[in-house]
C-alpha cells in the first residue's frame, strides 16, 4: 500500500441504486481508485442490521469518510441515518473517551433532482447547507473536519455525457483527497466542493 496516500471510505446509501444513473456514473471511476473503499450500505445491510464493530473498524482504517447518497426529502435515506445512529456511539465517536474519529475528514456527496437555484435561503426555502446542518453538527460532535458537500443537481436533466463529466470530476476530487498534504485550508470557505474544484481549475488555467 502506498504510504503517501490517504484512504478514502465511501459510505454509499441508495435503496434503488439500480435505477440511479448519476450515482453509477459517479462511482464508475472513483470507486476503482487505489486507496478508495466503496462500502455499499444497502447491499451490506438489507435488513438494516448494521454491524457496528465492522463499521468502526472501517472508520479507523480510513482518513477521509464520504456519506454518498441521493437527497430524499431534504435528507439522507433511512439506512444512512441508521448507520449514524448505530455506529457513532457515545464513548467511541464522541463524549467521554470518544475520540476515535478526531481529525478525520468527512463530507456528503449528494445527488438531487432539483437544480441548485431552488435551494436558496430566505422566504420558505433553505440552502442545501442549511438542510445538512445536522450532519455538519454530527461531524463536529465527533471532532471531525466537515467539508462542504459535493453535489450533483438536476439529475433528471443531465445527459449521459454530463453525468460522465460529473464522474470524472468526482474522481479528480477523490484523487486529490487521497494525496497527503493537499492544501485544504481555504476549502471550508466554499459552499460546495464543486466550487472549490472549479476555483482550483480556474487558478490552474490562469
Amino acid at each position: 500500500m502506498d504510504i503517501a496516500k490517504t484512504n478514502v471510505l465511501i459510505l454509499f446509501a441508495h435503496p434503488r441504486f439500480e435505477r440511479s444513473r448519476v450515482n453509477r456514473a459517479l462511482l464508475k471511476e472513483a470507486s476503482n481508485l487505489p486507496g478508495v473503499t466503496l462500502h455499499d450500505l444497502y447491499e451490506e445491510y438489507p435488513d438494516f442490521n448494521v454491524d457496528v464493530e465492522r463499521e468502526k473498524e472501517l472508520l479507523l482504517n480510513h482518513q477521509v469518510v464520504i456519506w454518498q447518497h441521493p437527497l430524499y426529502m431534504y435528507g439522507a435515506p433511512a439506512l444512512l441515518k441508521q448507520w449514524i445512529d448505530m455506529v457513532l456511539e457515545h464513548g467511541w465517536a464522541h463524549g467521554e473517551g470518544g475520540n476515535n474519529l478526531r481529525g478525520k475528514i468527512i463530507f456528503n456527496t449528494l445527488t438531487a433532482g432539483g437544480t441548485r437555484d431552488i435551494y436558496v435561503s430566505g422566504g420558505h426555502g433553505y440552502t442545501l447547507r442549511e438542510f445538512f446542518i445536522s450532519f455538519e453538527q454530527t461531524a463536529r460532535l465527533c471532532n471531525m473536519v466537515y467539508l462542504p458537500p459535493f453535489v450533483v443537481h438536476g439529475t433528471y436533466l443531465l445527459t449521459d455525457r454530463e453525468a460522465e463529466e460529473y464522474g470524472r470530476l468526482y474522481r479528480d476530487l477523490l484523487e486529490r483527497l487521497t494525496i497527503v498534504g493537499t492544501d485544504l485550508r481555504d476549502i471550508l470557505e466554499y459552499e460546495y466542493l464543486n466550487d472549490w474544484l472549479e476555483a482550483g481549475k480556474e487558478r490552474a488555467d490562469r
Binding site: 435503496p15 444497502y42 447491499e43 438489507p46
Partner: peptide, 9 residues
Amino acid sequence: GFRRYTATR
C-alpha cells in the same frame, strides 16, 4: 444481479 436490498424487500 439484483440489489440485495431490493431483493430483500
